[in-house]
């Protein structure tokens, strides 16, 4: 079996290009904790957008709460009015689509957006819900036994962790 090599920095540059195409003047960025939040932090800088990007957590709406309990992730902070906003959600990895379902519910707790789009670094397949990204920098196929998550070094360099579950 070949070892999967994902160059997260190269994929980030690809994501930046894709996000530039998806963004309009009034697009608001919101990253899903924690990988997506790192992405928007850097995108906001690289795109010269004013203010702070949004951070959105799936914790309050997860469907595996009864099994996993409450995760201790960072909390949602949306520094813009969600009502009528064009929101671009970012995440590191799109897998089953369950996180995104929870995040959409979370977003609606703050108001009714005009539109919501999704851009991710990696789409790893394996969807269990009808969710598709508007942009994915890479598409890979990973087995159920493998987990994939973005990591960030203290210097802010991205890399991917592929691990056996």
């Amino acid at each position: 079996m070949s070892i999967l090599v994902l160059d997260a920095e190269a994929l980030y540059r690809e994501l930046l290009r894709g996000v530039q195409q998806l963004c309009t003047a009034d697009t608001k960025l919101a990253g899903i904790t924690s990988g997506g939040a790192w992405l928007v932090e850097r995108l906001q800088r690289d795109l010269n957008l004013p203010g702070k990007p949004g951070v959105i957590s799936s914790a309050m709406h997860r469907d595996d709460f009864a099994k996993r309990g409450l995760s201790n992730s960072a909390q949602t902070q949306l520094p813009f009015d969600v009502n009528g906003a064009h929101v671009l959600i970012l995440d590191d990895v799109l897998y089953t689509g369950r996180t995104l379902r929870a995040v959409l519910n979370e977003l609606y707790d703050y108001g009714r957006p005009a539109s919501v789009k999704l851009a991710v670094l990696v789409d790893r397949g394996g969807r269990e819900l009808p969710v598709q990204p508007d942009f994915a920098a890479a598409r890979v196929t990973l087995g159920e036994g493998q987990s994939l998550a973005l990591a960030r070094s203290p210097e802010g360099v991205f890399s991917f962790d592929v691990k056996a579950r």
Partner: peptide, 11 residues
């Protein structure tokens, strides 16, 4: 949670 438009979470 009390600052949200919907002051409720479904946990």
């Amino acid at each position: 949670v009390s600052d949200r438009e919907v002051k409720k979470v479904p946990l």
